[in-house]
Design a binder for these strands. Structure first.
Lengths: 210, 210
DNA sequence: TGTATCAAGAACAATAAAAGAACAAATTTA
DNA sequence: TAAATTTGTTCTTTTATTGTTCTTGATACA
């Protein structure tokens, strides 16, 4: 199969990304409208080339619209707008992270993660309640061992206790600050603290509320 | 089996979506009325093709209406497993929902949605801040038109303004209650309020904080 | 410069669909 | 039971839509 031209690529990308938004396979005219073209004559040629490449099903004069082949649909699977992250366990202030028994995975939308490796924790406790992070919420953590002041981090204290807090780092002191006015900021020696990741996303289910 | 023509597709979609609203299988004339056709002659041909495709049960002159086969009902099931939801737009208290221009879809983990149809909105404003729902958060809404007292709903006020609030419904009064102590509960006539969905999930990105 | 790609549009052929007439079978009503 | 009505079926005719094929001209690129 030859490499696709720019336009062929654009059309396939468009179709793959908008499969869901067409309730049925679009006709050439509909595609033209969606793509901003004024006439379907030239689009037809491009579609035919894609039929040749095995990415679109032949239309042979049937009026059934432009349908992607299974092969084409597979192309998009890896580059979906989400990815599967490891659900590691439960984080509760003052305790080690309680790992869950069987490794679980959760599909997390790109909107609340980053390009870098991330993992998921479930939050236990109210220490970040004023930041809108509640007991039972999930948090998405980007895995890294450094953070900037003011970021929310998973911090390992004295190699034993894990906690989710705002961090402030100074030459001779590291502060872990809760978002809960009934709790106090904690002061540590920098060596006592290991950063295990930085908060990049959060999510919550309201299903069990009922 | 060949792919369906547009009209065949439309009819199957219609039947699937309106199964519940027909007390008995619709006759050809009823279907014509529902679909805006003036004569059943042409509809019959299309139905026969669908019988041939195994999606509709053969009628053989029985006057009992059009029934989908089990196979046809399965067609929609797989898309249920998919966790791709429509990102509809932005909800800001006191304004209509501001639809986004191009239909977008977001992949939402099963943990923060339900089995029923859901859609996604972005929240603007602070009216639910004490419930941990902040300006800029996404909310996942289960699409239904009724709610129980104490649930958080997308309510359409006077057919014009949309808002996200706790709801309390009494025979002669409906209350929309914010989760923000600097705001007041609003009192309405029940007829002023249309429920457009119930909150089932929430999520937030911390990426832009940096 | 020549080549490949692409947009626009005209013209055409095939298919799909709408409308309606006429009839037969099933069902309901009187 | 008989008549009336509804429903499904089979046609034909007409219209609309969709896919196809060409030609012309513009643009990008090596």
């Amino acid at each position: 199969m030859d490499a696709l031209t720019r336009k062929q690529h654009e059309i396939i990308d468009f179709l793959l990304q908008n499969q869901a938004s067409f309730t049925r396979p679009p006709s050439l005219d509909q595609l033209c409208a969606a793509l901003g073209l004024k006439s379907r004559g030239s689009l037809h040629r491009i579609i035919q080339d894609l039929v040749g490449a095995g990415l679109i099903e032949a239309m042979d004069r049937k009026h059934r619209g432009v349908r992607l082949t299974e092969q084409a649909k597979k192309i998009v699977q890896p580059s979906n707008n989400s990815s599967t992250l490891r659900y590691v366990g439960i984080i509760a202030a003052g305790k080690p992270i309680e790992a869950i028994e069987n490794t679980e995975f959760m599909t997390i939308p790109d909107e609340i993660k980053t390009e870098n490796p991330c993992y998921v924790l479930k939050v236990k406790g109210d220490s970040m309640i004023e930041e809108g992070i509640y007991d039972g919420d999930w948090v998405i953590i980007e895995q890294r061992c450094h953070a900037r002041n003011g970021e929310i981090v998973v911090a390992l204290v004295d190699k034993s206790e894990a906690t989710l807090k705002f961090i402030e780092q100074y030459p001779h002191e590291t502060l872990l600050i809760p978002a809960n006015s009934s709790m106090q900021a904690m002061h540590y020696q920098p060596a006592q603290i290991d950063i295990q990741g930085v908060l990049v996303g959060q999510m919550r289910s309201y299903r069990s509320m009922v």
